[in-house]
Write a protein that binds this DNA or RNA. Sequence first.
DNA 1: GCACTATATGTCATATCCGACATATACTGG
DNA 2: CCAGTATATGTCGGATATGACATATAGTGC
Lengths: 105, 105
Amino acid sequence: MNTGKLKRLRAAGWKAGSAGEFLGLSDQEAALVELKLALVAAVREARRKHGLSQTDLAQRMRSSQSRVAKIETGDQSVSLDLIVRALFAAGATRLELQRALSTVA
Amino acid sequence: MNTGKLKRLRAAGWKAGSAGEFLGLSDQEAALVELKLALVAAVREARRKHGLSQTDLAQRMRSSQSRVAKIETGDQSVSLDLIVRALFAAGATRLELQRALSTVA
DNA sequence: GCACTATATGTCATATCCGACATATACTGG
DNA sequence: CCAGTATATGTCGGATATGACATATAGTGC
């Protein structure tokens, strides 16, 4: 077996670390979830701003109405990629994307 | 009759089925690719800034060195979700993420 | 009540992504 | 040269996300 690799991994450890640096994975995942929620809100806003229905947006993304609904309701099966694609397809600009990120708690 | 909606669409320059829609999709995809590349650069920057090797970062993300390498080389198998998770795991703040987005062409 | 539109929810086959592993390259200090 | 470290690339089985479809709910105009 490859114990050498394990040793190297252990030796490498978690560098750059004061105690506070030892952030749990859950914190990172919480940040990602909050980020997604902020963008999801931006999608709905951008879509309505441009007078599009979910079906309209779905066509622009080459997706389906049900998937757009899942995007906007924060369904856990929806990736960040899809959210951002929806945002652009809904006519949001990069600046609006940045602005949406500012609203993250 | 729901002509109000059509008016709003036209006013916003969003006629369904127009040539602009065709171009729109490739523009949207180009925007997503550029966005990913900007974040990928930010990952490498944040990782080095905190003195982490790819293996270190992989441990923090509960991933593998090879996947981190793929993230940083812009491998097409890497999702935006994973890039952002890497960014946070590398110790980047939400502000740094926003700043990275500002560098998109 | 009925037809129409918009949005939400559940399911499913398949497409895409993931971690892991092997391995390659390159750079470093004995 | 050799051993150790860092990064890159190819592959693969299993995990997750996707579009599509059916269907549900709710609102509007007739």
